[in-house]
Every structure is written in C-alpha cells, then in structure tokens.
C-alpha cells in the first residue's frame, strides 16, 4: 500500500503529511517543556531565603559552569546550521555534500552530550558542606584522600558483601526475596555516615574560591572568604585545600537532585533535553548512513524526511537557547 502525500502536498492543508505531523508533535513538545519552564519559575520564585551559601535550602544559582555551557550552546547552533545546509544540499541534488553536513551535525550532537556528561560528573563529585556554626563551603574532595578513603571503604564493603552473599544464598535456598537483602553498593555520593563508618575524623577538601564570573554579584560566601586569607594560591574560580573536622560538620551533600530544588529541576530539564538530542542524533545519523537507497529511489521523499528531522532538530536547539540563559545566567 502506498503512503499518500509523502511528496506532494495534500490539497486541504497545502503541505505534505509528515510536515503537518511534525508540527503537531512539536506543539505537544512545547507544552511539555513549557510546563517544565513554568515549574522552574514557580520553584525559584517560591524558594526560601538564604541564597548563598545556604545552598541546602535556598536557590543555589550560579554554580553551573558558564564557559562550558556557552561552548555547548555554540556547538548546538553550529549543528543547526549544518543540518539546514544538509537539507539544502539534497534540494540541490548533492548527496555527498548532504552526507558530509549530516555527519558533522551528528558529531556536534555527540560532542554536546559528551560535554554535558562531563558537567554532570562535575556536579556529582561536587559537595556542599554545612558547618554547625551556620557557615558552609562547597568543593571537591582531595583526589588522593578520596582514593584512599574509597579503597578502604571498598575493602570493608567487599568483606561485607562476601558475608551478605552467603546470607543471600542461604535466604534464596529458603525461598526469601533477594531484593530485601542486597545492599546498596553505591559509593559515589558520600555522607557523614560513610565517613564515620570508616572512623574518619577529618576530610581533605578542595574548597571553591568565589568567582564573580561564576557566582552572581552580591552573594556572600562567608566561609570561603576566610580560606582566601590563608596566603594560599587563592584565585577566584580556583580551589584551596582545607582540612575539615567532621565534628564541626552538620551535613554533607553532593550536587544531586535530592540536595536542592534547583538541582532537581536542573537535572530534570537538561536530562530531558539531552534525551531529545540523543534521539535526534540517531535519526539524523540514520539518514546520513542509510539514506542512500531512498535517495536513489525517491529523492524527494528523502528530502522531505530530512526537512522533518531538521525541524525537530531546530526545536531541540531552540529549547536549549532558552534553557541555557534560564539555568546558567539569570
């Protein structure tokens, strides 16, 4: 059965069917992202006072890496230019040129995702430590210290796991559920409990030095200012090493969704956007690498398909054009 109006416009709409379809789909996407943007605004407006350094309860804005975010924006803009050039190449009947532009677009998409993964990892290994005296510091754990700590913890956990596996096997033989017995093995997000479990008295931390470029003007990172007076190499945006006594620490949390509302909405929005980028990249890659057959048989149909995929790609990029200033700058 032949699919109608894949090339010629439908008389009542004046457009080929796929174009009407993609615009209806994009309308639903506008509602999806629109709801998330609205949520962001409402959460931010309703955030309690204690902007900085009280990042555990306030709105810890300004903690994202603006230069990296800007570079990623440039990557997406470049990909939009090449996707439209790929479509124009097909319109001009040049498949080789189309393929070149399309491969570049896909490379841009995966670069974007790679950079985003780096940013995510930076947040997952970034901590806020709130002290009992009401101050707070943010930063990373010293690599050497962390490595030693995790090794020790892993050894201990491994021993515990052997014991648990034995208990598990026994429980299985008795017909009990495995799920109830398997331990949570993640070591990524450290907690005060994990430190006390290893009898650690103090932690070595690479504390963030405030930078006006990274942090909003007018913020007051109280505890960090004190570290900058130590005569250490304390440049804005850099780090100073600090030994923090665990007895002085009230709480410790990574920059993950459960730490603050800001991170919850940030990860939700950017991860959903990232999934769209991944989906778009797969479709564009499919046309670049498997489009030759259709190009030979039905060139106009392939051109229309590429246009539809290009519209989706532009939408995804347009979402980022709004998302970037909202979560990174404003």
């Amino acid at each position: 059965m032949e699919i109608p109006y894949t090339v010629k416009p439908r008389p009542d709409t004046g457009l080929y069917n796929a174009k009407v379809g993609i615009w209806l789909f994009l309308a639903s996407e506008v509602m999806l992202f629109g709801a998330l943007f609205s949520s962001y605004i409402l959460l931010r407006v309703g955030a309690p006072d204690g902007f900085w350094p009280d990042v555990a309860t306030g709105w810890p804005h300004g903690l994202l890496n603006i230069p990296i975010g800007t570079f990623n924006t440039a990557v997406l803009i470049a990909s939009s230019v090449t996707v439209v050039m790929a479509w124009a190449a097909l319109k001009a009947g040049n498949f080789a040129k189309f393929k070149g532009f399309m491969i570049f677009t896909v490379l841009c998409a995966f670069s974007f995702l790679g950079i985003k993964s780096y940013e995510y990892n930076e947040k997952f290994t970034h901590y806020v430590v709130r002290m009992k005296d009401g101050t707070a510091v943010t930063g990373h754990f010293d690599h050497e210290f962390l490595h030693g700590f995790l090794e020790k913890a892993n050894d201990r956990r491994e021993k515990k796991n052997v014991e648990l596996r034995e208990i598990n096997a026994k429980a299985k033989a008795e017909g009990k559920s495995e799920k109830d017995l398997l331990p949570h093995l993640s070591n990524r997000f450290l907690t005060l409990d994990k430190f006390s479990e290893e009898s650690t008295e103090s932690v070595k931390m690479l504390v963030d030095i405030p930078s006006a470029f990274r942090y909003p003007v007018g913020t007051k990172p109280v505890a960090v200012e004190a570290t900058a007076k130590d005569g250490e190499h304390a440049e804005p945006g850099g780090h100073v090493e600090k030994e923090i006594k665990l007895a002085d620490v009230q709480s410790l949390a990574a920059f993950i969704p459960s730490t603050a509302t800001f991170f919850a909405i940030y990860f939700t929005m950017t991860a959903l956007h990232g999934l769209h980028v991944l989906g778009g990249a797969l479709i564009l890659g499919y046309f670049a690498f498997f489009g030759k057959k259709m190009w030979k048989e039905e060139p106009e149909r392939l051109t229309n398909r590429v246009e539809v995929a290009g519209l989706f790609w532009h939408f995804v990029d347009l979402v980022w054009i709004f998302l970037f200033p909202v979560v990174y700058l404003l």
Partner: peptide, 15 residues
C-alpha cells in the same frame, strides 16, 4: 525548515 531556521537564527542572535 527555511522559516524555522530564520526564527532560530533570530533567537541565537538575541542570546
């Protein structure tokens, strides 16, 4: 796509 690309370009210039 041509029109949408123009809309996208305007948004990019504003950004």
């Amino acid at each position: 796509l041509k029109s949408f690309h123009l809309v996208f370009l305007v948004a990019s210039v504003v950004l």
